[in-house]
């Protein structure tokens, strides 16, 4: 217990926990929309495709600042999204194939570039490896500031255009028939999802980032039938697993933070899928059993006149 209290007072822990919580909160909110738009996989594609951008930014600008590297990630993530969309639009290749294709090419390119950087003398890898699996311990105060600023802008936009995003996510044709520009809405929402992915890269890495985007939303969907409750729950799940994952990795030696956070959110997903009332698997089994029993007890004579 004393170690736990000591941990809470630790400055590094505070910084990392705050960062992870912010990341969970933002990806929880944006992930809800990604999941409802059936773009969960796109998140995976964008995060993997961010890797060459990170390395290229370092090679071209020779700068290790997180903002610069993340800017590179943003550019290559958007470029990958653009490729995927144009392949689907201009050929007979389906979305999932286009996604897998672009994602693996970008990720492969990222690894090649990373090996190249390793060979540059004095570069000491520049700590770029942290973007593969994430390294929350490298979070600095200024990184947190960056996340907080991006997060506030995203949340403000969601609150402002709540009605439009809801309508567009549910029925985009109807939104357009009402005179809303679906092009603008689509662009805005996709861009916001990409930003949410990019700011989480340093903490959980390109491979696990899609879990941070999708899991909180999937778990939250199990518990509610209202969009705003889903988004709220999703952000709470994300933030909570960020803090718990960080605490776990601080108390257990050699437990990496990013994967710990992902394990934590995955546990929440499993519990939600099994136990949530209404949509949960166990509740459904119970309902079926009860109906069977009721039917038996009532005598099983269906009140239907025979022809």
């Amino acid at each position: 217990m004393t170690t736990f209290i000591a941990l809470l007072r630790d400055y590094t822990f505070q910084t990392v926990a705050l960062g992870s919580a912010l990341l969970g909160l933002i990806s929880g909110v944006m992930g809800s929309f990604a999941v409802l738009r059936k773009q969960s996989l796109l998140g995976d594609g964008v995060s993997h495709s961010a890797l060459p951008g990170v390395v290229m930014a370092f090679i071209l600008l020779g700068n290790k600042n997180t903002e610069i590297l993340l800017l590179g990630a943003l550019v290559s993530g958007l470029l990958a999204t653009f490729f995927i969309i144009s392949i689907v639009r201009n050929s007979r290749v389906k979305f999932d194939s286009a996604l897998a294709l672009v994602m693996s090419v970008f990720f492969g390119l990222g690894l090649v570039l990373l090996t190249y950087v390793q060979k540059i003398p004095n570069s000491n890898q520049a700590g770029l490896n942290r973007f593969i699996f994430g390294q929350a311990a490298t979070l600095l105060k200024r990184d947190i500031m960056l996340m907080a600023i991006c997060g506030s802008v995203l949340l403000a936009l969601i609150l402002l255009f709540w009605k439009e995003f809801k309508l567009f996510t549910f029925d985009s044709d109807f939104a357009q028939s009402l005179g809303f520009s679906t092009k603008k809405l689509n662009l805005m929402l996709s861009f916001m999802i990409v930003v949410a992915i990019i700011i989480g890269l340093q903490t959980v890495g390109v491979i696990l980032m899609s879990a941070m985007l999708i899991s909180p939303a999937v778990a939250a969907r199990q518990w509610t039938n209202k969009l705003w409750v889903m988004v709220l729950l999703s952000s709470i799940f994300g933030a909570a697993s960020g803090v718990v994952g960080t605490a776990a990795s601080s108390m257990v030696s050699k437990l990496p933070t990013g994967p710990a956070i992902v394990v934590c959110i995955s546990t929440i997903v499993m519990v939600s899928v099994l136990f949530a009332p209404g949509r949960g698997i166990l509740h459904r089994l119970y309902r079926r059993k009860r109906n069977k029993l009721l039917f038996k007890m009532e005598g099983g004579a269906p009140n239907v006149p025979s022809a």
């Binding site: 009605k163 439009e164 996510t169 549910f170 939104a175 809303f180 039938n225």
Partner: peptide, 30 residues
């Protein structure tokens, strides 16, 4: 629209969906 054109598992109530009809009159943000 054809009712098959949307995902009916969207988290919304009947009232929420019907209210969407007035979104056009309201315009952006309101």
């Amino acid at each position: 629209p054809q009712s098959g054109s949307v995902d009916w598992d969207f988290p919304a109530t009947v009232q929420d969906v019907v209210l969407m009809g007035c979104y056009g009159k309201l315009g952006w943000v309101k």
